[in-house]
Amino acid sequence: MTKEMIKITNLHKSFGNLHVLRGVNLTIAEQEVLVIIGPSGCGKSTLLRCMNFLEEPTGGTVAIDGVVLKNDSSINDVRKEVGMVFQRFNLFPHMTVLENLMLAPMKVRGVKKEEAEATAKKYLEKVGMADKAGAYPEQLSGGQQQRVAIARALCMKPKVMLFDEPTSALDPEMINEVLDVMKTLAHEGMTMIVVTHEMGFAREVGDRVIFLYEGNILEEGTPDDIFFHAKEERTKSFLSKIL
């Protein structure tokens, strides 16, 4: 059996009276690509954000590569290993592309400037943005910004990458350039958890799809199982709306 990369046990999260996650259990293997789908408000993003403690769970545990996440300074060590890509990119607007990529490796990993720059250029090359190293984020299109954001996360050499609806804020013609980068990563064996409704992506590189409904996993299976042979009515009705 392959190694467990993430183990989520009986995860609960409430915002005041709103009980968003209701006892999620989920294990993700090393090199697995997991796609999370579900209706708006079902807790997809919350589940993802609990995996690096941007949201602190109300109950249950999350373990990354055997380390149980806690809300103290140890969380920074875990986050080094868990890259995150946001819907709204969240690039640092006051820094150039290259500086965006070099900051965390230098400040968190203590990498030397020359080395950070070499790594940054390598990953910019990988996402096809090498010619924009000196540009500021606002000079880039949404698709380009998102590719830079992926490269920024990769510069920390993470073991896991979390994607929170990475293409939802993009114009349609820019979605593919981002998905292509993500597919390359998947083929290279990166462990990925992706909240997305891009079925093409899920089918091509997804190992498993989970359908989250009212704070719990209602159905899971291979992309074909879920997209074409869903057993639950809720899943079918949801898919009929997005496909």
């Binding site: 946001f86 969240n90 900051l103 968190v108 920024r152 996360a153």
Partner: peptide, 14 residues
């Protein structure tokens, strides 16, 4: 934007 703090923290910065 709170996303800036989240981006920084998600990269492991304090």
């Amino acid at each position: 934007d709170p996303g800036q703090m989240e981006a920084g923290r998600s990269l492991g910065m304090t």
